[in-house]
Structures are given as structure tokens and as C-alpha cells.
């Protein structure tokens, strides 16, 4: 319910004689157009020409990174699917077939049509397994084709890892990153209260 006291009424300002003529405004617009005629164009003739992207932070197609041994780096923690505001990541977790790892994604699907390319998933991932790549020109003829599964996402990694290597900052000390038992530097004495 809109209450009357919440409504603010604004009267339209009266136009002066010069404004009612419209000519100064038209000339103003022409000036902008003319200056642009002599500037360097910002557009390119896509798809013959393509823009150079900032590889590090362009938010395009996802990829699933591989660890040092070429296995999917994801540990199926569901952080990305929990963080995803579009609910487009669907994971089925299972027992990892490798002795040094606990959990891995049996199935990992991303609906690229639902995705809003916000990068929350990349932000949330504790092992930097999911990343957005500079790839933006992906098409499909059906909706199903735009749901990428684990193999397809790994293939995106294989395509793009030369261009943008995996970050892997190794912040967490657990088996997924092979850093279990890593020693942590002693904090300076004044912090260690």
C-alpha cells in the first residue's frame, strides 16, 4: 500500500524561450557526433577482428582445472554451487578413486545459459579448481549443449591453460593441494598473544 504521505509530487520545470526553440540542444548533439568522427574507433569488426582481452580477469566460460597429476582439481566441496547466485552449478560427489584424495566430483555440470558470469564460484573455490576463462564465443544449437559437464569443462582447461595458467596459490593445507602438514611460519611475537 502506498501511503499519501510517502508520495512526493514534483512539478515539471518551466522551459525558457531558448529551451523551447530546441536549436541549441540540437547543435550541442551535433558537436558530440562530429568530435567522434575524428576519434579512433572503439568498436572492432567482429568476428573478423577480435578485441584483445585482459586475460587475467575476463569473466567468460568456466573451466575445471587439473592438478599436477592431470586429475580434476575439484574436491567437490560444493562451495561454488552454494555461492552461485544463479544456482547453475550441479555437483554429484563421490569417493575419490585415488589414495591421496578423499572426495571428487563424479558429475559436475554448469548451465552456461543460467550463469550470470559473476565469478562468485571462482571466488569461493578453496582449491582454485573452477575459474572463468577469457573464452566468450561459445554457442550451441540446443539448451542441453550449453550445460557443460565435467569432461567439457576439463577440455576448456586444456584449451586455455596455455593462455591463462592455473593460479593455485596453495592456501589450504589439505590433501587436495598436496600440502598436508606444511609448516606455517611463526607469527611475529607481538601478534602471538
Amino acid at each position: 500500500m502506498i501511503r499519501d504521505e510517502d508520495i512526493i509530487r514534483i512539478a515539471a520545470p518551466r522551459l525558457t524561450a531558448a529551451e523551447r526553440l530546441y536549436l541549441p540542444q540540437v547543435l550541442d548533439g551535433m558537436k558530440t557526433t562530429l568530435t567522434h568522427l575524428f576519434r579512433r574507433p572503439v568498436t572492432v569488426k567482429y568476428p573478423e577482428e577480435k578485441r584483445a582481452l585482459r586475460v587475467d580477469n575476463h569473466r567468460g566460460l568456466h573451466r575445471l582445472n587439473r592438478d599436477e597429476q592431470g586429475r580434476v582439481a575439484c574436491v567437490a566441496c560444493f562451495m561454488c554451487s552454494t555461492a552461485c547466485p544463479a544456482h547453475c552449478i550441479h555437483i554429484v560427489a563421490g569417493d575419490a578413486p585415488w589414495p591421496d584424495r578423499e572426495k571428487y566430483p563424479v558429475q559436475f555440470d554448469i548451465d552456461e545459459l543460467r550463469c550470470i558470469y559473476c565469478g562468485m564460484c571462482e571466488e569461493a573455490c578453496p582449491v582454485d579448481a573452477i575459474e572463468l576463462t577469457p573464452e566468450y564465443d561459445f554457442v550451441g544449437t540446443t539448451r542441453e549443449q550449453m550445460v557443460l559437464d565435467k569432461e567439457e569443462l576439463l577440455a576448456v582447461y586444456d584449451r586455455t591453460c596455455g593462455l591463462k595458467p592455473r593460479k593455485n596459490p596453495r592456501i589450504t593445507g589439505y590433501p587436495g593441494t598436496g600440502h598436508r602438514g606444511q609448516s606455517v611460519p611463526r607469527p611475529p611475537a607481538d601478534e602471538a598473544t
Partner: peptide, 16 residues
């Protein structure tokens, strides 16, 4: 101190 002690050997593998 207790919490630090509990975490001495804890693997911190919350994601899995």
C-alpha cells in the same frame, strides 16, 4: 589456548 590445542593436529580439511 584450548582451541589452538585442538587444532594442532587437525587436518583442516573442511572442504572435503
Amino acid at each position: 589456548s584450548c582451541m589452538e590445542f585442538f587444532l594442532l593436529n587437525h587436518p583442516l580439511d573442511c572442504p572435503v
